[in-house]
Design a protein around this nucleic acid. Structure first.
Length: 264
DNA sequence: TCACAGGCTAGAG
DNA sequence: CTCTAGCCTGTG
């Protein structure tokens, strides 16, 4: 089905560092999420999604954050008189903050610490394959759920997790014992969710913010990793005006982050 | 060889 | 409270 979507650029989103299970296959972007596989192809000024209307409305519209008014973000950026941000926005205005599945996001960002993107993707892929749960009608595997794996599952050097293996092991065990935990997280405010997530071994301020932003959609979250830290020192020596972007700081962070990586 | 990669923990001060 | 060594592993 064909859809026109504003502020939507597949390449920019794929390279914005939110998602580790998007794959580029020639002119098709293959998205693995919610235990499904979605193929998208650009067609002129529209996008061709290989799903029906109902699937799109039920699952993907929310995933792509179509309910958020990115025109308002655009106005905010343009009125900011922040020349660096305006340039960053010019190059990354097609970025959206995805609403990703909570469990998978927690696992992904536990792996992400002190790590690089290819290795993060490789670890996730290896975990999914080792789990062995194939997604119907595709060659992709879904992430095994808590309770579906053995106790020593992650202590396996072929997964390339390094010291993060015990973090994942603990998280899986915890969630298997606390089946309502994720729902309770979804109901919390941004500060409460951030604090709650930090109680787990392996989740510090940055990882917690990433989960809040890229899954729970707390747009005020502003994850500070090594690149954002550098960019803040470089362009915002007098301090970054978080108040001005109140409620949208996370989107702004994405524009700045994307620009920084792209022009390095 | 060595730093560093989308940080965090644990322990010292 | 703040500060930082050490941590798995792959890459250039």
């Amino acid at each position: 089905m064909l859809k026109k979507i504003d502020h939507f650029d597949l390449k920019q989103i794929a390279e914005s560092g939110q998602c580790f299970r998007w794959k580029q296959e020639e002119d098709i972007t293959k998205i693995v999420a919610f235990n499904r596989v979605l193929r998208v192809r650009e067609k002129g000024d529209a996008f061709d999604f290989d799903c029906d209307e109902k699937d799109f409305d039920d699952v993907w519209a929310d995933y792509f954050d179509l309910g958020t008014d990115y025109n308002r973000v655009e106005e905010l950026v343009k009125q900011s008189k922040d020349s660096h941000l305006i340039e960053a926005y010019r190059q990354g205005s097609g970025i959206r903050i995805l609403r990703q599945e909570l469990f998978e996001t927690i696992i992904s960002y536990l792996i992400s610490q002190n790590n690089n993107i290819p290795r993060i993707k490789g670890s996730l892929e290896a975990i999914c394959k080792k789990g062995g749960f194939k997604i119907e009608g595709s060659n992709e595997y879904r992430l095994p759920a808590p309770g579906e794996i053995s106790k020593d599952f992650f202590f396996d050097s072929s997964l390339s997790l390094g010291y993060r293996d015990s973090y994942l092991s603990k998280m899986y065990e915890f969630l298997a014992d606390n089946p309502n935990y994720l729902d309770s997280l979804r109901k919390k405010s941004y500060p409460d969710a951030k604090e709650e997530l930090r109680k787990h071994t392996g989740i510090g301020p940055k990882v917690s913010d990433c989960i809040c932003l890229f899954s729970l959609h707390h747009i005020a979250a502003f994850p500070i990793d090594t690149h954002v830290k550098q960019l803040l020192n470089k362009y915002y020596q007098d301090g970054f005006n978080y108040e001005y972007f109140d409620g949208f700081a996370g989107v702004i962070q994405q524009y700045l982050f994307y620009y920084e990586l792209k022009n390095k």
